[in-house]
Every structure is written in C-alpha cells, then in structure tokens.
Write a protein that binds this DNA or RNA. Sequence first.
DNA 1: AATTTCTCCTGCAAGC
DNA 2: TGCTTGCAGGAGAAAT
Length: 288
Amino acid sequence: MPELPEVESVRLSLLPHVRGQIVAGVDVRRADVVSRGGVPRTGVRPGAVREGLLVGSRVAAVLRRGKQLAIVTGETADARAVVVQLGMSGQLFALQPGAHLPNASHVHVVWRLESGARLVFRDARRFGGVTVLHDRAALDERWSQLGPDALTIHGDQLAERLHATRRAIKAALLDQGLLAGVGNIYADESLFRAGISPRTPANRLTPLRIARLAGAIREVLQEAVAAGGSSLADGTYVDAEGNPGNFQLRHAVYGRGGEACRVCGKKLREGAILNRTTVWCAGCQRAG
DNA sequence: AATTTCTCCTGCAAGC
DNA sequence: TGCTTGCAGGAGAAAT
C-alpha cells in the first residue's frame, strides 16, 4: 500500500498543483485525523488550527522522508509544516477548480487554494492522518526519528544499522527508525532481488550481502517510482491526479505465494514475520 | 533493553 | 442470497 514509491508518486504529481499557491481556507470534516505535533491541546487560541493547516500561507514545497509527506511554507525557521501520512488507505489528491469531489465518503480534510483548486485528504481506514507542526525545527525533530531514506540508502549506512540488531532482516527493514520508506511489499521484493532469506538475523549478514541488499532496495524503489508505484486490486492507491501505478505487474514475490518463482521455477513460500504476510523463494534466497 | 504482539479501522472476498 | 469470518497493513502502545 502506500510505501515510499507510492508516496513519492503522490508528491511528484501533487507538486505542480500546490507549489506557489496561497491556502485560502480549510474544511476539516473529521477533526480526529488532525493532530498537533508537540503542542498541547489545551489553551489553543481560536484560529490556531486553521493557521497551522496553512490557511493564509503560501506553499513553498512538498517534501518526503520515508513514507511521510510534508507541505511546507518555506525553508526558514518560522516556516510552517503540515505532515501527511497515508497509512494503509490514505489518498491525497488535487481537484481542478470547479471539479466535482468524487466519492466524498471518508474525506476528512479539504484545503481550498487561491487558484480555486482543492487539495483533498481521504482515508477510509484512518490509519493515516495529518499533523500540524509549528515550525521547521519541529519537522526536523520529527524526521530525525526516522532512519535514512531508503531511496538513496548505501551499504555502509545500512550495515552500521543492521549490525546492531539480531532481528529477522525483514523485521529490521520494516522498522522506520532504522530505514525509512520500506513496507511489506518492497521488503519482500528487495530481499528477493538481493537473494536473502527474510528470516536471516540482520547481524549475521556480511558487509558484501548488505551492500547487495542496499543496491536491491534502491533499484526496486527507483523502478517502482518510475512505474508510478504499485496499485493493488483493492484500488486504494492512485496518485494526486487519480492515476494508478503499474509496478504491481512486476512484483516477483509479493502476492504470489504458492506460484512459481519466475527465476528458478520453484513454488514460492509464504509465511508470517511480524504478522505480515511474507513471500520468498527458498531456491533463490539464502540465509547463510 | 530488545523485540514481538496487539490494536486501531474499513472494504472486500471467500466460505457456508 | 445473505450472513459471518478473515485478511490487508502502518505505526504506536502494550506486553513479553
């Protein structure tokens, strides 16, 4: 579901619709999807949430780290930021001026832009949310909790982090504090491409194999971004212009448990790691 | 202290 | 046909 490639595809497709726009207003239809990072709820000045949601400010950029998006008003210390997390089923999309809002159910926040366009956050399962951050330092602090971005991860960075844990390598890859951006789909795809069995203890991987894994992660994620992400049968993932991705057509293992490995022909195995369905090829992926 | 399991939520598909 | 059950999983809390 939305992992790094999907979030990056949303970011890229959203950018031309919002960059340089002044936020004219915001309609919070479901208040509990909005939280205020590090700011107490009590004694909030009237209008502070609207201001926090960028009303009256000009959007300077849309940033991403791992699976998180940030809409920011500038680079200076007083710049405001709103973080959007898509969770499982979240969508962030732009509507042209005057466009009808399709399928209005589960729409939680609607920003009105000066151009007349609207920016919509919809999330049926509500695992996602919107976080208001008071300034740029709060965004830096928040993102410092995340590991390095997976799109540009290098072997030595990854090795340093994996050396410190004996967890299964797949569990480590899903830890956003260790590496930011990989979820269930791309963890399985990357491990397959690197030839590493998902239950291998992270600290038993040699530097050479970790370098190969870092390369596989970068490759898989870059190819997936180029393909516009993975749109699964549930239809939840589309980019900010409503377009689906097509990387799901190139999944080697995810969603293919029991089917034949496309490389060696062996039946793909399926199991659970951290309660996540995990698919791998016992022929192509080794522990030691 | 490290690591796993649980919980949140809804839509869809499979099974009876 | 219509019901129940199970599954999907990101992330933070709770449990081990």
